[in-house]
Design a protein around this nucleic acid. Sequence first.
RNA 1: GCCGCCGUAGCUCAGCUCGGUAGAGCGCCGGCCUCGUAAGCCGGUGGUCGUGGGUUCAAACCCCACCGGCGGCUCCA
Length: 640
Amino acid sequence: MRVIIDGIEVDVEPNSTLYQLSKKSRKRDVLIAKINGKLYDLSRAVGDIAKEGDVIEFLTFDDKEGKEVFWHSTSHLLAAAVKKLYPDALPTIGPPIDEGFYYDFYNLKIGDSDLPKLEEEVKKLVKDDVKFERIELTKEQAREMFKDNKFKLEIIEESNEALSAYRDGPYVDLCRGPHIPSSGYIKAVKLLKLSGSYWRGDSKRETLTRIYGISFPKESLLKEYLQILEERKRRDHKVIGKELELFMFTEISPGSPFILPDGFVVYNELLQYARELDKKHGYMEVMTPFIGRTELWKKTGHLEKYRENMYEVVPFSDENDKYVLKPMNCPFHIAIFNAKTRSYRDLPFKLSEFGIVHRYELEGTLDGLLRTRVLQQNDAHVFVSEEQIEDIVSEIIEMMNETFRLFDMKPIFVLATRPEKRIGSDELWDKAENALRNVLEKIGVNFTVKEGDGAFYGPKIDVYVLDFTGKPEYAYAVSTVQLDFNLAGLLGAKYMGKDDREHVPIIIHRAILGSIGRFMGIVLEHTAGNLPLWLTPIQVVILPVSKKYEDFANSIAGKMRERNIRVTIDGSESTLEYRIRNARLKRIPYIIVVGEKEMNEGTLTVRVRGQKDLIKTEIEKFVEKIEYKIHSRSMDLSLN
RNA sequence: GCCGCCGUAGCUCAGCUCGGUAGAGCGCCGGCCUCGUAAGCCGGUGGUCGUGGGUUCAAACCCCACCGGCGGCUCCA
């Protein structure tokens, strides 16, 4: 028969295996074959699955699906290893994930210290180069084979396709396949961590023990991966924040950051940036209360839908006078809108607030500044008519883009469309979704669509920012713009239209930086603590070589302070080397050493963060240059 | 909330397996050095071992509960 490999037609024996065929491909280290969109084991005979003229594609570890199969096969080895050391454990499922694989077991009680033993067992299987053997099963046979495993039985009963199992060495697992030909392809394995999980992700069902791992066809790839993990730790904003004394946490208020003096400099700069941006686009800033009567939140539906995330506030002296600590600002902004009779001439009505909101997040989800129980939002609500949606959203997306450019961040836009359960007419949803889509297309940003992921009250665009790995799965959620057809009506917001009739405005919720604190955490990770000049708590440090030069240092510092440059002098009684080291560890952008030479010449010798060579410059020039850099919020520190 | 790990000096961590009066480095304080680009030398200071209970003649160490932190709990054989 004839099939197509690498775009070339070849003659093949129908009973030759795909493995034999793969030798005709240019690709090496082939793991599986893809025919008509389906993946097959290389041990299969061509004639059994391919038709005359079919395209046969061979996949390797470099292909996404190849990787998945590779990792999935490794998870089977893990299951085999667990079965050997803990015969009473029941394997459930073991899929590949974005980075590696996991396998969930029932009735397995182990700790981190047991992982090395398991890893050894997996490595033994790898060394034995066990074959993955496919076994086709009828439902009846499958039931019999897995009669002791209620989880597998559940899967069997739900299935209506042909069933199969795979044998790798002593272990047989129900599996759709395909698999890599044998375990010898795996050259490096690492079991990474342990966690709990639930059968089918359902907290009402059995608790399982999940083992995470990863594997590679080359030892060097594992090394690279472990380096990425190291880098993630190195960039962890919690670690950096502690090192630089930017913020802290204590159990006296779990999940709520204490922003320290240096951190508050950064925080305030971000706040000021966001404030300027809003002002530039005609937002009116307001401040509203922290608490509101419980009735309000009942009316908005929060009490019902958002209850588990809210705090109740009750005065000790009258426990019947109940309030809710606001988790959002929107109802209060509507109150401001409602305080006067509004007309179409007032629209778009733009209110912004750096409102501090409290949300009771589950203990296990807290994560430094990235997930807290108190946050200051870069929040705004725009009250618009239907026709205005597109313009306003467009403006908001531009504001976001301006921000991402400033921080050199790469955004991902995600359009979330109507969910099953929703309010509002289909016409309105059509209009709103189209408006969002049009804006994204007009501005020319790449975006993906998540069908059905919108809120019940309207569609939205969520914006994520890639982290240093560039993997979308690890992107930070940053900005959002959401259309809301619901809330204005619930709280009685209306305006008089040109037609002399009352209309209910549509509310656009939006956040650019998201939350200020959270954004600070993201910037810290994004820059690995090397904050842009305008954000650094100390922009310049001057180190006099010895006490003799302190006056000179003071005079320079004075000139800088006049220009609002944040400068300190470290004239402490330690060696120059020691003080330089400290300044570097603090990631201060400019470290200036002054001594005899500089005093005589009126120059500065500057050590620029991230640069090897020392720069010699005149005082005035230096001050002017960095003053400009600070004001323009430049990312570039270079003085040339 | 659930699973696993962790909590010892201001910070990073050792000590816990095998119970017997608490250690290191950094920091901080003092002294010497007066210094030219990533840690100068010497001395000192510093701990209710997360909290509470239990076992024991004796608990940082063993057991239980609680508090807090970290990783995970969406990826369907």
